[in-house]
Each structure stands twice: as C-alpha cells, then as structure tokens.
C-alpha cells in the first residue's frame, strides 16, 4: 500500500471504527439501523458533542478543561431562570456566562501559571457554587409554553430530522471554520505541537490559550442550554457525569491528549462512537450491571485503534 494511502487511512480510522460498531450492533439486532432509531441516537448525542466541541481546542493545545460539566450545569440554571423574562435572548446570556467561566479558567491558568487541570477544576467549584446561589439550591422548571415559544428551534424538528442534529452540525461547521481558517485554530495546534517553538516564533501563546478556554466555556454553556431545553429544567447538578464521557469523546475521536494532533470533526465522530457503544449495548442485550465493564473495555480498545501514533513520540 502506498504510504500516502496509509496516512489517509489512518486519518479515517475513527470513522471506520464508528461504521464498524454500527454494523456490529446491526448484525445482532437489525432494528438498530432504522432511520428513526439512528436519528434519535444522533440527536441524543449532540449535547455530549456540544460539550466536547470547544474543549477539543484546549486539548489540541495540550491543556485540559475539567470545568465543562460545571459550566453546562450553571448555564442550564441561567437559561431556565431568564427565559420567561428575556425570551430567546436568555440563550446568548447563558453562553456568555459560560464564556466568562472559560475565561476565568484560562486567565488563572496563564497568569498564575497553574496547570489547566487544576485551574479548571477549581473554577468548576466556583461555578457550581455560583449556580447554587443563583438557583437558591433548587432546580428551575421551564414551562411547556415558554419552551415552545423560545427554544423550539433547538429541540423541535426541521426537515424531518430533530433540530438538535441541525444545531450540532452547524456548530461543527462553525468550529471547523475556526479550526482551519482562523489564527486561533491554527495557533492552538502549533502550541500543542511545540509550545517553546510557538513562543519563540512570536505567537502570543497566553492570549491564544485564554481564547481557547473561552471557546470551550462558550460551547459548554451552549450544551447546558440544550440540556435545559431538552429536559425542561435547569439545575446546578444537571450535567454531572458528563465530564469524563466528553473527554473520552475527544480522545476516542483520535485527538491526542499531548496536543498538536486532532480535529473537531474527530470529536463529532468520537461522541457518536461513545453513543453507539452505550445504546448498542442495550440493543444487543448486555445486562445493565455489566454495561459499565463493556463500556470501559471498549473505550480502551477504541483509543488503541483510533489514536494516530505517527506524530506522537512518547506516550504518557
């Protein structure tokens, strides 16, 4: 096989893995590949993708953002509380709140030179407390009418497909544009590949880092809005248990934790892989108690297959 083909093939391994998993589940339970089943699966996955999408840029730089679940919970509260008053304007306010939380993580990371692992972990504590204060320690319901009036574009249906899927695809295209065509996306990759070289070549590394964390906060905030819209309520713990799956989605897609290698489309595929494994187990009939064992094993194997080692010299 010519070397060029081989590198092309490696690029598409996550996609091949996804299709292989779908085929595997389908051979055991054919009803899995019905159009309606698959669209429900994809629309359920979009919140996970939204959460992981911006964080991909942070991981691309070799950092990590552990605040996404706290930020999403916080914005679910913000949007649920403000929706009756502000209408659809509550959405940009919630996203802005996420962006500010992201900026806090990024600025404390760069200014105080604290590892992003710790700065974002600490920010999630602060954000959670803020959400509890803002919501008076309760969950806030969104009434059916308010939701239909202001959030139907996000959780309704469009052209025969759930609106979540369109929202997710549009965000994917926007972020791909940011990643490929804007300095932020390209500098993120350069910083991840070699931070000292990036500093030496005059890139304002700290500023780009803060931008990446802001982007991650904003998309996590958007994910919180979508969760609130889907569930009809916002609560300070709504997105708990979403943090590790969202990082897993990024890495299963083939983005390296060491930075420099990866892409947002990979995260999209990675989120779908996780969803297919999760839902597929129910279809195949794996017992509820055994599902977590299978999930863990598949996670390890999926990363073993999808990770592109040609550009990674040392695995930490």
């Amino acid at each position: 096989m010519p070397a060029k083909w081989k590198t092309e093939l490696v690029r598409f391994i996550p996609l091949i893995t996804l299709l292989g998993l779908v085929a595997l589940v389908a051979t055991i339970e054919p009803s899995f590949v019905r159009f309606s089943t698959l669209t429900v699966l994809v629309s359920d996955t979009m919140t996970l993708f939204l959460m992981a999408s911006g964080a991909t840029f942070v991981i691309l730089m070799g950092g990590i953002d552990l605040s996404v679940q706290a930020v999403a919970s916080m914005t679910s509260v913000v949007v649920a509380a403000l929706l009756p008053e502000l209408g659809v304007l509550a959405v940009p306010v919630a996203v802005a709140a996420g962006l500010i939380a992201g900026a806090a993580g990024g600025i404390s990371h760069t200014l105080l030179r604290i590892p992003s692992f710790i700065s974002t972990l600490a920010v999630s504590g602060v954000v959670t407390t803020a959400a509890f204060l803002f919501s008076n320690e309760r969950s806030i319901n969104i009434s059916g009418e308010t939701r239909d009036a202001h959030l139907a574009w996000m959780v309704g249906e469009f052209a025969g497909v759930q609106a979540e899927i369109w929202v997710g695809l549009i965000l994917l295209l926007v972020l791909l544009f940011v990643q490929i065509w804007t300095p932020i996306g390209r500098f993120c990759r350069i910083i991840g590949a070699g931070e000292q070289a990036a500093i030496a070549s005059g890139i304002r590394v700290d500023r780009i880092k803060v931008y990446a964390f802001m982007l991650s906060g904003a998309t996590a905030g958007f994910a919180g809005v979508m969760m609130a819209a889907r569930l009809g309520s916002g609560s300070p713990t709504l997105a708990n248990e979403f943090l590790l799956p969202s990082i897993a989605a990024i890495i299963v897609g083939g983005t390296a934790l060491t930075g420099g290698v990866g892409s947002v489309w990979r995260t999209f595929i990675g989120a779908l892989i996780i969803a297919v494994v999760r839902i597929g187990m129910t279809f195949v009939g794996v017992s509820v108690f055994a599902q977590q064992i299978v999930f863990g094993l598949v996670l390890v194997l999926a990363v073993a297959v999808t990770i592109d080692r040609s550009k990674i010299l040392i695995v930490k």
């Binding site: 990082i247 934790l257 094993l297 390890v300 695995v315």
Partner: peptide
C-alpha cells in the same frame, strides 16, 4: 501505547 489518562479511565470504569 494508549495515554495513561484513557487507559486508567477505561479500567476504572
């Protein structure tokens, strides 16, 4: 050759 982050996350699950 999987990053320890993912290996240990998976095995932890």
């Amino acid at each position: 050759r999987i990053p320890s982050f993912m290996t240990t996350l998976g095995i932890g699950f």
